[in-house]
Design a protein around this nucleic acid. Sequence first.
DNA 1: GGAATAAATGTATAAATTTGCATTTCGTAT
DNA 2: ATACGAAATGCAAATTTATACATTTATTCC
Lengths: 161, 161
Amino acid sequence: MIMKNRNERLMEIRRLIGSMNISSQDELNKLLEKRGYELTQATLSRDLKYLKVAKMPDDQAGYVYILPDKEQVVEETELSGQGLSGLISIDFAQGMAILRTLPGHASSIAYTLDNLDVYEIAGTIAGDDTILLIPRDGVTRSDLVNLLKIRMPGLLQEPAQ
Amino acid sequence: MIMKNRNERLMEIRRLIGSMNISSQDELNKLLEKRGYELTQATLSRDLKYLKVAKMPDDQAGYVYILPDKEQVVEETELSGQGLSGLISIDFAQGMAILRTLPGHASSIAYTLDNLDVYEIAGTIAGDDTILLIPRDGVTRSDLVNLLKIRMPGLLQEPAQ
DNA sequence: GGAATAAATGTATAAATTTGCATTTCGTAT
DNA sequence: ATACGAAATGCAAATTTATACATTTATTCC
């Protein structure tokens, strides 16, 4: 049986937790099984620790898992202002993202992106008006686009597929 | 032995969790004991659920409890802009807080405060330029001042004690 | 006040999560 | 290819957390 790799699984876990209310590791594990992943609850516990997923009380479901939101904290402060306003577009090639920026803006934007400290971004390299963003394995285009949209609403235009 | 009441305990739990890294309910319970509270882990579990305290993985401590942060989410959007800019001052009397606002601003600010949906605020009543804010039992002045400071940095001047 | 009702808590137990240790898998260098 | 070290995982036990049920404590309504 072909075992999908860990990074794909981690991304799938993020997607699941981000898109629905999940109350226990067993519940999450069943969802993962349906998607072709096979693992024990112990591994799941470690995955959630790695992803910094928190379990929070919820009126409806009792308890739900939530993704870490350095996002809201860092983002609103660092990005909304002028932090990322020089960003022009995103494109994808060779499994990586190429961000175009205004001349001279690349390194500061890349710096900001690095400091988001999000799972999806493995690293960045900046030139003068271009940033090469290396996504972690398993991260899709739309994952990245969504990520960036959240952080710079209005600034980002959908890249041509 | 005089048992401090539940609300005081809940506030103390919030303070403890907000100010230090706590990794388990037993650990928290011991801290509470030192402060004169006596309760079982079961009650603590219920308290944490009531307070919507989440347990999140942490590089240092393994796991730590964190306070819910509707704050950052709601706040940045609803308040930073003009939502609370009409607020002038805070004062305290009879265990309640009296907020002064620009004329006509009271009810909209009170509405915003209500929708913060934070534990500390039991309720509000607004006139034209004054808001009566009823804190929950056990909530101190500085609790409230800190709460408001977080939401409207710069807008709030320390009230005369 | 006293009965009735609801809220809070304890006890004991079940459920859920974490972790030490052994094993397997994977990558890398020889 | 083989050997080595590191990373990932499973298994089982320990720890931690949640909850059903009973009891106590507080509140409300006559």
